[in-house]
Amino acid sequence: MQADAGRVTALETVPGALERLEAWFVHEWPEWYGPDGAGDAPCDLKACLQGGSRLPRCLVSLDGSGDVIGTVSLRDTSPGSDRYPGVWVTALLVPAPLRRSGIGTGLVSAAEAEALRLGFSEIYASTANAQSLFRRRDWSFHDSLRTRGTALDIFRKPLQA
């Protein structure tokens, strides 16, 4: 899998990335993964290490030196998955200084390919701020919802080989 600005691979091939990703999760989503949040970043990431053909899956983008420069996960749970069961793009994260360089687009593209490889015919995402990225990848607005006081848009994309 190739990203626009990096090589995308499964997290289980880069186990040394766990600590960095855990720190990123806590920094980016402190209300969920911080000390008072209900989330558990180490547990969520370790669940992705199983590999193979089961969810959850975590993909990472690596730069030319092999350093992690972004991540995305595929899960069957996400805000909105109670309404629309299936595979969901979650935890799309590129550090702020590297955003708008194609890394996120490459990660979403790789997530689409991985979902198709896993046998899914469509994919969903809920987002508060990445609508333009999904639209550029030909995703369609599907619904909206509020969760924990945040408005989210749900996007959907049919997958084809």
Score class of each variant (00 low, 15 high):
53 S>P: 09
53 S>H: 15
53 S>V: 14
54 R>H: 12
54 R>I: 14
54 R>V: 15
55 L>T: 07
55 L>V: 06
55 L>A: 11
59 L>P: 08
59 L>G: 07
60 V>M: 05
60 V>F: 05
61 S>F: 11
62 L>Q: 12
64 G>P: 00
65 S>D: 15
65 S>V: 11
65 S>T: 14
66 G>D: 04
67 D>N: 15
67 D>P: 01
68 V>S: 04
68 V>C: 10
69 I>Q: 11
71 T>E: 12
71 T>C: 15
71 T>W: 08
71 T>K: 13
72 V>T: 08
75 R>P: 02
77 T>Y: 11
77 T>L: 12
78 S>E: 15
80 G>D: 04
80 G>K: 02
80 G>Q: 03
81 S>T: 03
83 R>G: 02
84 Y>F: 14
84 Y>K: 02
86 G>F: 02
87 V>T: 09
88 W>A: 00
89 V>C: 08
89 V>A: 02
91 A>C: 12
92 L>R: 01
93 L>T: 05
93 L>G: 05
94 V>H: 05
98 L>S: 10
98 L>Q: 12
99 R>V: 06
99 R>I: 02
99 R>S: 02
100 R>S: 15
100 R>N: 13
100 R>L: 11
100 R>I: 07
100 R>Y: 13
100 R>G: 08
100 R>W: 11
101 S>A: 13
101 S>K: 15
103 I>M: 09
106 G>F: 05
107 L>N: 01
107 L>G: 04
108 V>I: 11
108 V>Q: 04
108 V>P: 02
109 S>P: 02
110 A>S: 12
111 A>N: 03
112 E>L: 09
113 A>E: 14
119 G>V: 10
119 G>C: 07
120 F>S: 03
120 F>V: 00
121 S>T: 15
122 E>S: 14
123 I>N: 04
123 I>L: 15
124 Y>I: 06
125 A>P: 04
125 A>E: 00
125 A>K: 04
126 S>K: 09
126 S>N: 14
127 T>W: 09
128 A>H: 14
